[in-house]
Design a protein around this nucleic acid. Structure first.
Lengths: 167, 167
DNA sequence: CTTGGAAAGTCAACAAGGCTGCCATAAAAT
DNA sequence: ATTTTATGGCAGCCTTGTTGACTTTCCAAG
């Protein structure tokens, strides 16, 4: 059992006060800005936005994935994704080919230039994350991950965990 | 480079592998969606967006704050904020009055209807956060906060910490 | 007092990326 | 063969980010 305080037989629930929750909320807000700041700079140089980053990231993670699958993961609508995918394909960063089994589907993979940009973006983001992890230490990181997972919606958690098996 | 193993007298650095960092990055992405999902639903009922939520939140936190101060906290441009503020003032949720000392400034406060909506939004968000905190436990929460603070930009961290003293 | 610069805030115009809704094509079911 | 269902593309709208020009106010130098 996680305890925390040293009250008689009960847990110390000070970490659940509205004040503590508010601090957590604001920390989440400010941290997310830091989290996206470095990739955003690189993207801006290429005339892309965060939506492009997300597409590149998950196509890299699940090569050969379909538009539908990507829609499920990203939780946006078709047009939002489609606009982004179209520019990435036009610019030669993503390869879109008609599905092997089902010809309605498109199978998406990164081209070599696509991989290059993806690596630049993810390395920038990892550097920030690595610095934060190192500063906070392994135990803090474990807690960080626990809270984040508990904060997800059910469907999101499944998308998150399900990312192990390829598309 | 990435070590991980249990080398001689060194710490265990497995939590700094690219794989662990990637999981943290994806967890951050999915968790942030959960984090905003509940307020988003309430906002949509009122025809507002996240930008309105942020404005209401920080005006509530720092009553009498100015537009400039809010710009510093939120890190957006004047027009982005101004558009949102204008609708909130028109709708009677925010009171904007000429500054007492400096008449160029506007002092912003929530009206009673503004406070009602702010409470609804923040209670929805706190409920999610409370559930996550409870599920993860106090030690995890401490780690969560440490990693988030380490992830912020310097300026953001100052805005975050500086929110103690009023505007 | 006047003038000139800096600061606060408003607004116009544009771009990115959310959204819904409609359509074409391919597959599956009847 | 025909109807239904699924994938994905496209048109058009809205929020919210951007830059840049403008007004009002303050303050400091002359």
């Amino acid at each position: 059992m996680q305890d925390g305080g040293t009250t008689g037989g009960g847990e110390n629930l000070l970490f659940l006060t509205d004040e503590q929750l508010r601090k957590g909320i604001e920390a989440m807000f400010f941290a997310y800005r830091g989290f996206t700041a470095d990739p955003d700079r690189i993207l801006a140089e290429h005339g892309y936005g965060r939506a492009h980053h997300r597409a590149l990231h998950f196509i890299n993670r699940v090569p050969g994935t379909t538009v539908s699958n990507l829609l499920d993961i990203l939780g946006v609508t078709k047009q939002s994704l489609n606009r982004v995918l179209r520019t990435l394909v036009e610019d030669g960063l993503v390869d879109s080919r008609v599905g092997a089994r089902d010809r309605r589907e498109r199978q998406l993979t990164l081209t070599e230039p696509g991989r290059v940009l993806e690596r630049a973006l993810s390395e920038a983001q990892r550097a920030r994350m690595r610095a934060a992890y190192r500063a906070a230490g392994p135990q803090a990181v474990a807690g960080f991950r626990q809270v984040l997972e508990a904060m997800m919606d059910e469907g999101q958690r499944r998308a998150f965990s399900g990312l192990r098996e390829g598309g």
